[in-house]
Structure formats: C-alpha cells, structure tokens
C-alpha cells in the first residue's frame, strides 16, 4: 500500500469507518455513527431493509457524498480526500447500472474507461473486449444500450467495474434483474474474483445470496450497524428449531413441553419448538416411550434469515 504520513495502516481492513455519520439537509439522519470494518480478501455482505442507510454509506465510501462527521478509509487512504488515488483500484456498481442509451454497449465502456486518468488508452479496446467477454455481452456489444434488457444493463454495469484489475469491488445488488442462470453466473464470477484476492463488498436484499457467497456480513437497520462478523458466527447465533413430524401432534407437543421445549407450534402433522437444553436423542427416546409415532425428527439449521429477523425485528423478502 502506498504510504504517506496520514496513511498509517490501522488494521488489515480494506474499508474502515469510524463514527461515520450522514445527516441530510432537512435533518434526516441517514447513517448514524457507523463503525464498519471490511477485512482484506473477504466477500463482505452488506444487509439491511430499504432505507436503512446502505446506499448512503456506499456513496460516502466512493467519495460521492461528504460525511457530516466521522472518518472513512478505503484501501487505507482517507475518503473523500484521497478518492482520486483510491478509486482507480475500486470497481463499483452503485444503485444499479446507468448507461448512455444512445451509445452502444462497447462505447459505454470506452467512455467510462476514458474517464479514468490512470487507464492506458493503448490497452483500452482490449480491456473493454475482455470485460464484455467476462459478463457474456460480446455478441450484443454493438447494440445501442437503450435496446438492452434489465439483465443486460446489469451485466454491462458489472463489466464497467471490471475494466481494470481491482483490489476492491463494491457491488450494490449485482444480481438484480437477472434470471436464475444469470444469477449463478454472477455468483461464480464473484467467487472467482474473490479467489484472485479481490475484496468484494456486496450489498443485497437476497439473504440466500449472502449465505451462498459471503464470508462476512454486516447488518444495518435505521442507519445503525446492528452486527458484523463472519457469516458462520452470525448464523450459529440463531438457534435451530426442533421439528417433529408425527400423526399424533397433540401428544408430541405435550411430551416436548414436559421436556422443557418452548414456543411450540403445531401445523398439521408438524410440531416445531425451541429445543430444550438436552441431547436431542433423549427427547426422541422420550417421545417414543410415550407412544408418540414419530415419522421425522430433526433440528432445522439456524439460517441467516432467522438471525436477521432476530436482530432487526423486521421481515425480509427472501423470495426476491
């Protein structure tokens, strides 16, 4: 990392914010005292309901918005002050793609690349072609962008983020508007980039997407950071539920209650509950001893969604 007096590397963080706050004119507090740390080499999921301040945070990190107070460092340098030195190493997709409809896909990328004063014009056509190829748009490169479908626009936006080798990719809802096949391709691309050592900062409203590709996660709600850490730790924090499938649900519920299970829910032949503090095998034996006919018995794994709902107290559109 390039060094200057104010560039002392505090942590191994690619993004580090301290007390980052944005209050818009009119008094609305969009981001409130954010302390975010994104470790190098991570695929960092940034979660939160709409209006929770995710986009404002990303805009502050990219030097588009001046923070009201607090500091932000990207790649060890302060933003927005050192934004012009930092941003050539950052690829970004912010709030969906924005394209010049009257230009072809290729000309859009040529223009964005020309805007970067550190981009070599001699390698420009080659890099544009490679980026188009990487997102599968080579065949449509000559078409006017206004004729692109939402999925194609999204791919072109991603291609713009991949015009150079990057140390950090900031992707805001990268699979928005893509079909399932396209989503799989983008996830594979994110994993591939991460394995090259690129840190990926991924905001998404799709929890299963975060679970599939992210190593770390942060959750925001109403402008505040609720939690951050490795995905596995967060998901483990949400306890799994005990699920018993039986033709005798009433008897099963009675036995489970005797054994200390709480929050019992009976739905048809399924009984679910918060498991008691004992070996599940003992609970199962107790059910069978009491004459309950058990078809299925197991613990449902704690998901990120459970953790999320527990943290924010809000529902979340998982189906997307």
């Amino acid at each position: 990392m390039t060094g200057a007096a104010d560039d002392e590397e505090p942590t191994h963080a690619v993004i580090a914010t301290r007390g980052l706050t944005k209050r818009y004119r009119g008094g609305q507090l969009a981001v409130d005292g954010l302390d975010l740390t994104v470790p190098a080499g991570s695929v960092f999921g940034f979660l939160g309901p709409n209006g929770s301040g995710k986009t404002t945070t990303i805009r502050m990190l990219m030097g588009l918005i001046e923070p009201t107070s607090g500091t932000a460092r990207v790649l060890g340098r302060p933003v927005p002050r050192a934004a012009r030195a930092v941003l050539p190493q950052v690829g970004a997709l912010i709030e969906g793609p924005a394209l010049y409809g009257f230009l072809s896909g290729r000309d859009n990328l040529l223009r964005y690349d020309a805007a970067d004063p550190t981009a070599d014009p001699r390698t420009r056509p080659g890099r544009v072609a490679a980026a188009l190829d990487r997102v599968g748009l080579t065949a449509a490169a000559g078409k006017k962008a206004k004729a692109y479908s939402l999925g194609m626009r999204q791919r072109l936006g991603l291609a713009a983020a991949l015009l150079q080798p990057r140390r950090l990719l900031v992707l805001d809802e990268p699979t928005n508007g893509l079909d399932p096949q396209g989503m799989r391709e983008i996830r594979a691309l994110v994993r591939e980039l991460a394995s090259d050592g690129t840190t990926v900062f991924l905001s998404s409203h799709l929890l299963d997407e975060i679970e599939q590709v992210c190593t770390h996660v942060a959750v925001m709600t109403r402008g505040r950071l609720v939690t951050q850490g490795p995905v596995a730790e967060l998901a483990a924090g949400a306890r799994g539920r005990l699920v018993v499938t039986t033709p005798d649900p009433a008897d099963a519920a009675r036995v489970l209650k005797e054994r200390g299970a709480t929050d019992l829910v009976i739905a048809g032949d399924r009984v679910t509950a918060e498991p008691p503090d004992q070996d599940p095998a003992e609970v199962n034996a107790a059910l069978v001893t009491a004459g309950v006919r058990v078809r299925g018995f197991g613990l449902e794994r704690g998901s990120l969604e459970d953790a999320f709902v527990a943290l924010t107290g809000e529902g979340f559109d998982v189906a997307g």
Binding site: M1, A40, G41, P88, Q89, A114, A115, T118, Q164, T198
Partner: peptide
C-alpha cells in the same frame, strides 16, 4: 493484508494518472 498485498504487487495498485491520458475524457 496478505492476499490484497500480493494482488497489489501484480499491478493493480501501481497506476498513476498521466497528463496525456487525462485528455482522453475530453476526446471522448
């Protein structure tokens, strides 16, 4: 920052703006 540093060494970081390249935007 082991991984990022190796990556930086391969060329992602060491780019500086050039005066002539800056005119690329005007041309475009």
């Amino acid at each position: 920052m082991s991984r990022a540093e190796t990556y930086a060494a391969t060329g992602a970081a060491a780019r500086a703006p050039r005066a002539l390249w800056s005119l690329g935007l005007l041309r475009n």
